[in-house]
């Protein structure tokens, strides 16, 4: 019997490597190799064709003196904060609404809320360009119905980014809601029952039971939302083309423009490396923080 198990061990080696081979090959060829060559390229000046010219750290120095790039970083942070501050509490709020015991048709509503998250961003962006249009847009029409002034959504530098945030919240909140909902359903009922006997108010139950016990979920939601928000590109590309006045020029949009419109491949790679570092750093910081404030039930 031990012999068979022993043989199984070596069989596992063989089959294990074989099974992970395709995915690891894809990983090394299509992710690690481009990452390394991208980092290498970031030290060159290269217009996309012809010879590469060694530039040392010039691209990096240029980046931190490039007001447009810094603006793009600021815009990306603005967008990300908007999604984190507005989108995540909304997702939690929806999850709490849908988690009420008396609610009928929970699955139906969950479906509706989730629907936008499966749709094609390119198509949805076109729809929102129309929804947010100043004179014939539905959003401004409803604002008018409740007595609010028209907003020049995608054309006013102050409102363009809020417009993108609004659309992204519509598009993405259902996803986080589903995760929160699952998290809520994982909290044992007994906690609440005990609290109710103690006469805790709804707020106290939320503050001292729901929030702490939901913290692993919240952590996951915050980290994934932040990473995806930092990559925002499509909305800016389709809805506003980075404008007006660079108000929606995000990091990735600026990278794209440098590389594929202005022939600055090396400079564009330096910006990509910067973005990559931010994403990795953010993930690591969150991991550290997680240990401190996440409670596992």
């Amino acid at each position: 019997m031990f012999g068979k198990l022993g043989r199984y061990k070596y069989k596992q080696w063989f089959w294990g490597y074989l099974f992970v081979l395709p995915v690891m090959a894809g990983f090394f060829l299509f992710m690690i190799y481009p990452m390394i060559s991208g980092i290498a390229l970031s030290f060159y000046k290269w217009p996309g064709i012809g010879p590469k010219e060694w530039a040392g750290v010039a691209n990096y120095l240029k980046m931190f003196n490039d007001a447009h790039f810094l603006r793009a970083v600021g815009n990306t942070v603005y967008y990300t904060l908007g999604i984190l501050v507005l989108g995540i509490p909304l997702a939690l709020f929806w999850a709490i609404l849908l988690n009420q015991k008396f609610l009928k048709g929970r699955n139906f509503f969950r479906l509706i809320y989730f629907l936008p998250t499966v749709t094609m961003m390119a198509a949805v962006s076109m729809v929102w360009k129309w929804l947010l249009s100043p004179n014939y847009g539905l959003v401004n029409y409803f604002l008018g119905l409740v007595g609010l002034p028209k907003v020049n959504w995608l054309l006013d530098p102050k409102w363009a980014m809020p417009g993108l945030i609004l659309m992204s919240i519509w598009k993405g909140t259902g996803f986080n809601m589903v995760i929160f909902l699952a998290g809520l359903q994982g909290i044992p009922k007994t906690y609440y029952e005990a609290a109710e006997i103690d006469g805790a108010t709804a707020w106290h139950r939320f503050r001292y039971i729901t929030l702490p016990l939901l913290s692993p979920t919240t952590f996951f939601v915050v980290i994934t939302t932040m990473i995806t928000s930092f990559q925002i590109f499509q909305q800016a590309y389709i809805l506003t083309e980075g404008g007006p006045r660079e108000a929606t020029t995000t990091i990735v949009f600026y990278i794209y423009k440098n590389a594929f419109e202005w022939f600055k491949m090396g400079y564009s790679c330096a910006q990509s490396v910067f973005l990559l570092l931010i994403l990795i750093l953010a993930t690591l910081i969150q991991w550290r923080i997680q240990r401190r404030w996440v409670h596992y039930a």
Binding site: S133, P134, N135, Y136, N152, L154, L155
Partner: peptide, 12 residues
């Protein structure tokens, strides 16, 4: 002068 559609009108 208001004789030409502005930026907002052109967006639509």
């Amino acid at each position: 002068h208001g004789v030409m559609p502005g930026v907002t009108e052109l967006a639509e």
